[in-house]
Design a binder for these strands. Structure first.
Lengths: 120, 120
DNA sequence: GACGGTAGTAAGATTATCTTACCAAGCGTC
DNA sequence: GACGCTTGGTAAGATAATCTTACTACCGTC
C-alpha cells in the first residue's frame, strides 16, 4: 500500500473501465459474470480495490483484450529503475559460464512458450 | 473463494514458483523486491494467497517473463464455456449495425495497441 | 412526477493478508 | 556428529482488505 503502488493500481483501473465500456458491458454484467457485486466492480474501476490475478485473467477474456494491455505492459516497475539487475548480477557472478548460458536459454524458451499456443 | 477459482489460483501459483526458480531468485529476494515478507511469497506460491494485478506485473518484470505466460493465457475461464456470448448476443441485438461495426473496430484497435510498444 | 437501468458511496460484518515467530531440510565446515 | 547459514513452510494474533446491503444521484422514457 505504498504511494507508488497506488499509481499502478490506478493505471490498471483505468484500462479496466475503458475495456468494459468498449465491450459494451455494464458494471452489473461484469459483476454477475465474475461472481462479484456491483459495488466491487465500481471500486475496482475507481482504483480503490485490488484486482487479483485470476480476476484479471477473467476480465481480459470477458473484454476480449490482451492481459498485457490491461497492465500497460508496465515496464517501469518493481521499485526504482532496475533493482533486479543488482541482484541478478550478484547471483550471476556466482554461476559458471555454462550454467549462466543454460539459464538464459531457459528464459528464452519461456518467452517463446506463448507462441506455441495451447499445447498441454 | 469458490472451488473453481482456487484451481486457477493454483495454476498461477505454479507458474510463479517455476518462474522464480528459473530466474534464480529465492523467496526472500522476491519478497524484498516487492516489499513483501517471505511467508507471503511462500503462500502465494502455495496457492493460499491471491496475487494482485500490480504484483503480477512486477513479478513478470522481475522474472523477465510474459504476464500471459504466468496466467497460462487462461482461455477457459469466467464461469462455464462462453457466458459472455449470451450477454454479448443480448446486448448486440439491441445495437444498430453501424454501432456494432464501430464497436468491433474499437476492439480491433485495442488488440493491435500492444504492438505499438512503449510510446508514452 | 414515476419507472427502470446505471453508477458511486457508506457502514458494519466478514474475510484475507500481514507480521512475527518457530520448525525442518539442505549444505559446507570443523 | 555438531555448528552455523540459508532456504522454505506454517501458526496465531493483529491489521487491513473486501464483501454485502442500503442509500443516493444521473439519465432516458413514459
Amino acid at each position: 500500500m505504498t504511494d507508488q503502488d497506488s499509481v499502478t493500481r490506478t493505471q490498471i483501473a483505468e484500462r479496466l473501465k475503458e475495456a468494459r465500456k468498449l465491450a459494451g458491458l455494464s458494471q452489473g454484467h461484469v459483476a454477475r459474470m465474475l461472481g462479484l457485486h456491483r459495488p466491487s466492480v465500481s471500486e475496482i474501476e475507481a482504483g480503490n480495490r485490488r484486482v487479483s490475478a485470476d480476476e484479471l485473467a477473467k476480465l481480459a477474456a470477458l473484454y476480449d483484450v490482451n492481459v498485457a494491455w490491461l497492465l500497460r505492459e508496465v515496464p517501469d516497475s518493481v521499485d526504482a529503475e532496475d533493482p533486479r539487475l543488482e541482484l541478478a548480477a550478484r547471483e550471476l557472478s556466482k554461476l559458471k559460464p555454462e550454467d549462466l548460458q543454460r539459464l538464459l536459454n531457459l528464459l528464452a524458451v519461456m518467452r517463446n512458450d506463448k507462441d506455441e499456443g495451447s499445447g498441454g
